[in-house]
Design a binder for these strands. Structure first.
Length: 272
DNA sequence: CTAAGGACCTGTCGGC
DNA sequence: TGCCGACAGGTCCTTA
């Protein structure tokens, strides 16, 4: 479900609710999600602590406390929703964070591809350590992307979705940014020119920024902590639009499969 | 090392 | 209406 803009939207919705609040207790309902939930660490290091900040790294949210952070990943179908109690537990509610007498954050994830983990300030976390460039960070440049791609023969589409290289970009924003930059998704990443990388990074940033400003993309089940959907779906040019007219030239949008994922693009416009 | 494919899950949708 | 296959916003792990 969520890519960078959706996770960032959630971060911004949660921050004013939880910053400075003390985590009273954590309730676990099942721990066989993507990774076993480290209940012991969470109880020992997070319970009873004040949430100092919420940060984001790629698609991960970090609820920061003194010794580290509760690490959340929403996978494909995850949500964090606020409720006034720990009752009304949904079918796929796996964890409830109890903050104030009437603020409970429910971690809900039907497909269980998401994660609730403990990030220690001392040891970090391997999933975070191995992440690549942050697209919106000013320190990320076209030059660094080109370097990261090296002589890779993999497609630029799969490069964009490779979190070891570049974080936060999933299927929607990979397709949309390639469309905006007019780059063919099948091109080998190692063959893009510096001009290509510059156009691609600029396009990607613009799309991510606009999506964050719209509250993200709600295709079916993305809602922020207040239950609000995102409206960026209205601006999608190619994603999910197979056969419909390209917004730029009018010819039908194509769909192919690359490394197991659908790619939507315009054969006419994306010719670079 | 790289690249591709499978695996992990549940829910929904379209076709018959 | 019911059943069945295809597919879904992710990414780690195995295989070649």
């Amino acid at each position: 479900m969520p890519e960078l803009p959706e996770v960032e939207t959630l971060r911004r919705a949660l921050l004013p609710l939880v910053k400075g609040q003390t985590l009273q207790s954590i309730k676990f309902f099942r721990d066989d999600i993507r990774f076993p939930i480290p209940k012991k660490n969470l109880r020992q290091f997070a319970q009873g602590q004040s949430i100092r900040n919420i940060s984001r790294r790629g698609k991960y949210l970090l609820l920061e406390v003194t010794d580290g952070a509760i690490l959340l990943h929403l996978g494909m179908s995850g949500r964090v929703a606020q409720f006034p109690s720990a009752r009304r537990v949904e079918k796929h509610t796996h964890v409830i964070f109890h903050l104030t007498p009437d603020l409970f954050l429910h971690f809900i994830d039907p497909r269980r591809f998401g994660a609730v983990l403990w990030f220690s300030n001392e040891t970090g976390h391997p999933l975070i350590d191995s992440l690549g460039l942050e697209p919106l960070a000013p320190t990320t440049t076209a030059d660094k992307l080109k370097q990261a791609a090296g002589k890779s023969t993999a497609s630029i589409k799969s490069f964009l979705m490779n979190a070891k290289k570049l974080v936060g970009v999933g299927n929607i924003y990979a397709c949309e940014s390639l469309f905006k930059a007019k780059i063919n998704p099948k091109r080998p990443a190692g063959k893009l020119s510096m001009k290509d990388w510059e156009r691609l990074l600029a396009a990607l940033r613009k799309i991510l920024d606009q999506s964050i400003a719209s509250g993200g993309t709600t295709l079916r089940d993305f809602f922020d902590a207040d239950g609000r959907p995102g409206y960026y779906a209205l601006n999608l040019c190619v994603y999910g639009r197979e056969g419909k007219p390209c917004p730029s030239c009018g010819s039908p949008v194509s769909k192919i499969v690359q490394t197991g994922r659908s790619t939507f693009f315009c054969k006419v416009c994306q010719n670079r």
